[in-house]
Measured scan of single mutants.
Amino acid sequence: TELRLDINGREIKVDGADKETLKELLKLAEKNNDEKAIRIIRHLLER
């Protein structure tokens, strides 16, 4: 399955993203107070 998050109005594919990319996405999600995106990205970073 493909995991996509809508961050800042942009749909971004997050599964398969490297750790650096995920960290950047996490910063974006935190800036937007997007709890769902934050939770998902943190979960991916823990893998």
Score class of each variant (00 low, 15 high):
residue 1 T to H: 14
residue 1 T to W: 06
residue 1 T to R: 05
residue 1 T to Q: 09
residue 2 E to W: 03
residue 2 E to V: 01
residue 2 E to N: 09
residue 2 E to F: 03
residue 3 L to H: 15
residue 3 L to P: 15
residue 3 L to V: 15
residue 3 L to C: 14
residue 3 L to K: 14
residue 3 L to G: 15
residue 4 R to A: 15
residue 4 R to I: 15
residue 4 R to K: 12
residue 4 R to F: 15
residue 4 R to P: 15
residue 5 L to H: 04
residue 5 L to Y: 02
residue 5 L to M: 06
residue 5 L to I: 14
residue 6 D to T: 15
residue 6 D to Q: 14
residue 6 D to K: 13
residue 6 D to F: 11
residue 6 D to H: 14
residue 7 I to G: 01
residue 7 I to N: 01
residue 7 I to Y: 03
residue 7 I to F: 10
residue 8 N to Q: 05
residue 8 N to G: 13
residue 9 G to C: 01
residue 9 G to W: 01
residue 9 G to S: 01
residue 10 R to Q: 14
residue 10 R to N: 13
residue 10 R to H: 14
residue 11 E to H: 06
residue 11 E to I: 11
residue 11 E to R: 04
residue 11 E to T: 13
residue 12 I to E: 04
residue 12 I to W: 07
residue 12 I to M: 06
residue 12 I to D: 01
residue 13 K to P: 06
residue 13 K to D: 09
residue 13 K to G: 04
residue 13 K to H: 10
residue 13 K to Q: 11
residue 13 K to E: 08
residue 14 V to G: 02
residue 14 V to F: 04
residue 14 V to L: 05
residue 14 V to I: 07
residue 14 V to A: 04
residue 14 V to E: 01
residue 14 V to S: 02
residue 15 D to W: 01
residue 15 D to F: 02
residue 15 D to L: 04
residue 15 D to N: 12
residue 15 D to A: 05
residue 16 G to M: 14
residue 16 G to E: 14
residue 16 G to W: 12
residue 16 G to T: 14
residue 16 G to H: 10
residue 16 G to P: 15
residue 16 G to D: 09
residue 17 A to Y: 08
residue 17 A to M: 07
residue 17 A to W: 07
residue 17 A to H: 08
residue 18 D to L: 05
residue 18 D to H: 04
residue 18 D to S: 07
residue 18 D to V: 03
residue 18 D to E: 04
residue 18 D to G: 04
residue 18 D to R: 03
residue 18 D to A: 05
residue 18 D to W: 02
residue 18 D to I: 05
residue 19 K to D: 08
residue 19 K to C: 09
residue 19 K to R: 11
residue 20 E to H: 09
residue 20 E to S: 08
residue 20 E to C: 08
residue 20 E to M: 05
residue 20 E to L: 03
residue 20 E to W: 03
residue 20 E to R: 10
residue 21 T to Q: 10
residue 21 T to D: 03
residue 21 T to S: 10
residue 22 L to K: 00
residue 22 L to N: 00
residue 22 L to E: 00
residue 22 L to C: 02
residue 22 L to Y: 02
residue 23 K to P: 01
residue 23 K to R: 12
residue 23 K to C: 06
residue 24 E to A: 10
residue 24 E to H: 10
residue 25 L to A: 03
residue 25 L to N: 01
residue 25 L to T: 03
residue 25 L to K: 00
residue 25 L to R: 00
residue 25 L to I: 09
residue 25 L to Y: 11
residue 25 L to H: 03
residue 25 L to G: 02
residue 25 L to C: 05
residue 26 L to Y: 05
residue 26 L to P: 00
residue 26 L to C: 04
residue 27 K to P: 07
residue 27 K to W: 08
residue 27 K to M: 13
residue 27 K to I: 10
residue 27 K to N: 12
residue 28 L to D: 07
residue 28 L to E: 12
residue 28 L to V: 08
residue 28 L to N: 04
residue 29 A to D: 00
residue 29 A to W: 01
residue 29 A to M: 05
residue 29 A to L: 08
residue 29 A to H: 01
residue 29 A to N: 00
residue 29 A to R: 00
residue 30 E to N: 06
residue 30 E to L: 09
residue 30 E to A: 10
residue 31 K to P: 04
residue 31 K to H: 09
residue 31 K to G: 11
residue 31 K to S: 13
residue 31 K to D: 14
residue 32 N to A: 14
residue 32 N to Y: 15
residue 32 N to E: 14
residue 32 N to K: 04
residue 33 N to I: 07
residue 33 N to G: 11
residue 33 N to D: 13
residue 33 N to K: 10
residue 34 D to R: 02
residue 34 D to P: 00
residue 34 D to I: 06
residue 34 D to C: 06
residue 34 D to A: 13
residue 35 E to L: 08
residue 35 E to S: 08
residue 35 E to T: 09
residue 35 E to Q: 10
residue 36 K to H: 13
residue 36 K to F: 11
residue 36 K to S: 11
residue 36 K to C: 07
residue 36 K to T: 11
residue 36 K to I: 09
residue 36 K to D: 13
residue 37 A to T: 05
residue 37 A to M: 03
residue 37 A to V: 05
residue 37 A to P: 02
residue 37 A to I: 06
residue 38 I to T: 11
residue 38 I to P: 00
residue 38 I to N: 03
residue 38 I to Q: 08
residue 38 I to F: 02
residue 38 I to C: 03
residue 39 R to E: 13
residue 39 R to I: 13
residue 39 R to W: 05
residue 40 I to S: 04
residue 40 I to G: 04
residue 40 I to C: 11
residue 40 I to L: 08
residue 40 I to V: 11
residue 41 I to V: 06
residue 41 I to M: 02
residue 41 I to F: 00
residue 41 I to C: 02
residue 41 I to P: 00
residue 41 I to A: 01
residue 42 R to Q: 12
residue 42 R to N: 11
residue 42 R to S: 10
residue 43 H to Y: 04
residue 43 H to D: 12
residue 43 H to S: 12
residue 44 L to G: 04
residue 44 L to F: 14
residue 44 L to D: 01
residue 44 L to H: 14
residue 44 L to A: 12
residue 44 L to T: 07
residue 45 L to Y: 01
residue 45 L to P: 00
residue 45 L to A: 03
residue 45 L to S: 03
residue 45 L to M: 07
residue 45 L to Q: 05
residue 45 L to I: 10
residue 45 L to T: 04
residue 45 L to G: 02
residue 45 L to W: 00
residue 46 E to P: 06
residue 46 E to I: 05
residue 47 R to S: 13
residue 47 R to I: 12
